[in-house]
């Protein structure tokens, strides 16, 4: 779902870095400061888990498959700022070692997939999760993923609006290409997965909230 290198020009990618950088600094100072030696390995471990979750393929009807994201689960378990830091790190590792995403679009992808979606998921979980954990987890993950996808579509649409020579695909085409699978397949899988995973974790740990 994230944007590959080359799709967005510096007119969008540089402001996104400017917007993301203070949040990265804030996340690092708040959670991984020198007095929090436990936090650094824990976040490294959570990032590894988030990375691995994104490699788990779910077979869907029609013979194809989708993959999980896990950002909503991280936000529910550890808060949106930790989810943002972990997801940013996942995107960095993917761009450096696996050719997915890219270094120029890291800021945009981190804001879309690590901040917008997980933050909405966390808010929804806080609002609904205590009363109906399964429904809350499903809605949080489903709507969180839609928010992330919509932000990616918005960024691509803005690029097409600013410079059609850079990105010739009109935004309605982007919207259909990205939102349709997200609304019908990926979102449902993410929602169901998050509800199941939180259910399992609550049985294992006895408590869900961070």
């Amino acid at each position: 779902m994230h944007i590959p290198d080359g799709f967005l020009a510096p007119t969008i990618t540089l402001p996104a870095y400017v917007a993301a950088a203070p949040l990265w600094v804030w996340a690092v100072r708040k959670h991984f400061g020198p007095d929090q030696i436990e936090a650094l390995p824990a976040v490294g471990a959570l990032t590894a888990v988030a990375f691995v979750l994104q490699t788990i393929m779910i077979p869907v009807p029609g013979g194809t498959s989708t993959h999980l994201v896990g950002a909503a689960l991280l936000a529910i378990l550890r808060g949106p700022l930790v989810a943002f830091a972990c997801e940013s790190l996942v995107l960095l590792v993917q761009s450096l070692f696996f050719g997915a995403g890219g270094i120029t679009v890291l800021g945009v992808n981190a804001l879309a997939m690590g901040l917008v979606g997980p933050s909405l998921a966390w808010v929804l979980w806080k609002a609904i999760g205590r009363h109906a954990p399964r429904v809350g987890a499903f809605l949080a993950a489903y709507l969180g993923l839609q928010a992330s996808t919509a932000t990616v579509v918005l960024a691509l649409g803005l690029q097409n609006h600013l410079s059609p020579a850079q990105l010739p695909t009109p935004w309605p085409v982007m919207a259909v290409a990205m939102m349709l699978p997200s609304l019908t397949v990926a979102g449902l899988c993410e929602g169901l997965y998050t509800a199941v995973a939180l259910g399992v974790l609550s049985r294992v740990r006895g408590s869900l909230s961070a």
Partner: peptide
């Protein structure tokens, strides 16, 4: 898909 999701949920706890 249901089997895959249940398996993913279970393996998350292990991970």
């Amino acid at each position: 898909a249901r089997d895959g999701l249940r398996n993913a949920g279970g393996v998350t706890a292990t991970l």
